[in-house]
């Protein structure tokens, strides 16, 4: 992939991330409410950037997404988004680095989603007074597993379309 291609695709994914976060905001809130923590639909876009383009670009999209959230939902939501996005990308990069090709997209997605949730919760407890993280931990694991499964199933469906536009896994 050339530099220009990377740039264009990364910004395309950023646009998708924004659309996903708008869709997510218009959905009814989750029945199991964790303060400030969202399902992280827009994190899907960040994951795909990491899988198909690269780590640096994934961090860039996570930061850009936080800036977008800042302009629409204020600084608290923005810090949550940033904490979730950065931790998620870091954890997934670590997994890819340690396990190389042995790790599957499903596991990457699951741990990406879990760390996204954990990052957000830690940010909430820093911005506000300490919450008892342990109490929310089971819920975070559960929603993380669900979100991870959704992400990788979506990826499975989208993959053929990616291939048609000459867009292969560069890892």
């Amino acid at each position: 992939m050339s530099k220009t291609q990377r740039l264009v695709l990364t910004s395309l994914f950023f646009a998708i991330a924004i659309i996903l976060s708008i869709i997510e905001n218009s959905l009814p809130p989750l029945p199991i409410a964790i303060p400030g923590v969202k399902f992280g639909l827009s994190n899907i876009a960040v994951m795909y950037v990491l899988f198909f383009i690269g780590g640096k670009q994934a961090y860039a999209v996570a930061v850009l997404k936080a800036i977008f959230v800042f302009s629409t939902r204020g600084w608290i939501a923005s810090i949550l988004s940033l904490a979730g996005g950065l931790l998620s990308v870091t954890v997934m990069i670590l997994f890819m680095y340690i396990f190389k090709d042995k790790v599957s997209y499903l596991i990457l997605s699951i741990f990406g989603a879990i760390s996204h949730n954990i990052g957000q919760l830690v940010a909430v407890s820093i911005v506000y007074t300490n919450l008892y993280l342990l109490y929310f931990f089971p819920l975070l694991l559960l929603t993380g597993v669900m979100a991870g499964i959704v992400t990788s199933v979506l990826l499975k469906f989208i993959q053929p379309a990616f291939k048609r536009v000459g867009f292969y896994n560069s890892n």
């Binding site: 599957s104 997209y105 596991i107």
Partner: peptide, 17 residues
């Protein structure tokens, strides 16, 4: 990289437990 491996199921079950 694969989408899904059989061992993933074990990881998921461990997480749920």
């Amino acid at each position: 990289m694969k989408f899904f491996k059989k061992t993933d199921l074990i990881v998921i079950i461990i997480l749920l437990i």
